[in-house]
Design a protein around this nucleic acid. Structure first.
Lengths: 149, 149
DNA sequence: AGAACTCATTACTTTTGCTAACAGTATCTC
DNA sequence: GAGATACTGTTAGCAAAAGTAATGAGTTCT
């Protein structure tokens, strides 16, 4: 229990889990504070990007995808709709459901966000070696899969 | 804006930042829900592990390390102290400061947590290839450095 | 047709972090 | 050495974000 090195801690799956968990928690907190467009929450941004990638989705599908409970997604969508970044249409087959998709402005915002994202994280990434960035590229994809499974 | 692949999105630092941000946010949310000892928050667990690794630390040092404001750390420490996982002593040289360290029970809990962490994340990690796990090992260290800088 | 389930929402609560303001202590400057 | 200044930890009050429980509308199963 003295001062185990990181490599010692990550030899096992459990140790890796511990380290990863702390690292992800810390970075998430940091990101929450440093977000570029302060008026958009982390969750809202995530939904915008998910919609940009997948097109139309139902609120339920979005909630599942973002690993959030449906009421939370209702709120996120309401906030995005208020700002006209997103709009809802009725599901053609099932009148309980809705389909959410980006508005023109939503698409513009995603694009603009991509362009001008010289924010905190991008800067930090710039300080890394190409090798490290390559590692993160691969890791991002794995992390995404992890939270899906 | 149709369906760009991940590799397209991560070619640039900005694109990588976007993907990483979403992935980290999603995983952090997921971890919050899936944590092994439900009575311990993510922040509390992080502090426990930090103390296990660094020994005695002042509240201020802990706050800086966890990227949290001092009042938040006060609460985290208070909660841990309430459960007698941690205890405080006066700093020998500076009477403003305190030193926080794990109690015997805190050490036990960290050990037990490590042992019985067959929880969600560990299981998920088990499904990865050795290569992917190696990537995450490296990534964990980089992510940690990112949130420090 | 009725029971059971699903989807989205509302209402309420909990968690978690923040800023501002403070009391006590240390350090710097004259 | 005395007073100003800065730092440490805490309290108080607030805000953001997510969770659970309950509800109304719609669908599916038997």
């Amino acid at each position: 229990m003295k001062h185990p090195t990181v490599s010692q801690q990550t030899r096992t799956d459990a140790g890796l889990a511990a380290v990863l968990r702390v690292a992800v928690g810390r970075l998430a907190r940091r990101l929450r504070a440093q977000r570029p467009d302060a008026s958009l929450s982390l969750g809202q941004t995530a939904v915008l990007f998910t919609l940009a990638r997948h097109g139309q989705m139902t609120p339920r599908a979005l909630a599942d995808h973002e690993k959030v409970q449906p009421p939370s997604m209702t709120r996120i969508i309401a906030a995005l709709e208020e700002r006209e970044l997103v709009h809802r249409t009725k599901h053609p087959d099932d009148r309980r459901q809705q389909l959410v998709e980006l508005t023109e402005e939503g698409i513009r915002l995603v694009r603009a966000d991509r362009r001008r994202r010289e924010a905190w994280l991008t800067q930090r990434l710039g300080e890394l070696t190409p090798d490290e960035k390559a590692t993160l590229r691969k890791a991002a994809e794995i992390l995404d899969r992890l939270s899906q499974s």
